[in-house]
Amino acid sequence: MGVMGAVFRREFVTYFITPLAYVFIVIFLALAGTLTFFLGSFFDRGQADLQPFFAFHPWLYLLLVPAIAMRLWSEERKIGTIELLLTLPISTTQAVLAKFLAAWAFTAIALALTFPLWLTVNYLGEPDNGVILASYLGSLIMAGAYLAVGACFSALTSNQVIAFVLAALVCLIFSVGGTPIVLEFFTGWAPSGVIDTIASLSFMSNFRAIARGVIDVSALVYFASVIALFLFANVVLVDLYKAR
């Protein structure tokens, strides 16, 4: 097991040592179910698919993913273990990646535990399971983008609450980027090219493409770039903390 494997495993196991994992999973499943059945009118639509389930994922992640990410670096800074971690033979990039991947793996488990919904639609009708699989993958990679934002802000402060609020705020801006809330602010004075760019930088609009069941390469590239960008910022922030 490599250096990154060791850090990954420690981070991952830590979620389950503390009550965080269980609280998170229960709330995630409860909210996912509630939103799907009540706000998403799962039954009334009369269609055997998971569209109403996936449609709410950006909103779920907006609230819950920063909660998983906030402890990644803030806690280390607060207790001082960051000094221990970064004086072990591991590079900052390795540490950032290992922590991110551990949190992502944890999110994947929470997401996988929504499988009863998948069983339900298969019991009720004959959904396109290919579309569902694509949506799940799309949702997971979008969760990665939210996580990368959260991890980055976690490295900015030793206060988990501040890390959470900042991450949630930036996630919100990214989420609603393609909606009238943001676009109307720019309409009228910004050139249409700018408005189109802002619209295309939204988590929602990119996820919508994937959730329809189309593996949209540009959407995947988009989420991968967001992850890469924020993890890079994360590495820079940790290095700045060392060089301060």
Binding site: R10, I17, E83
Partner: peptide, 13 residues
């Protein structure tokens, strides 16, 4: 081998 000030370690472990 380095022991930082206050000997921090992961408390939940």
């Amino acid at each position: 081998g380095y022991m930082p000030e206050g000997a921090p370690s992961y408390n939940e472990m």
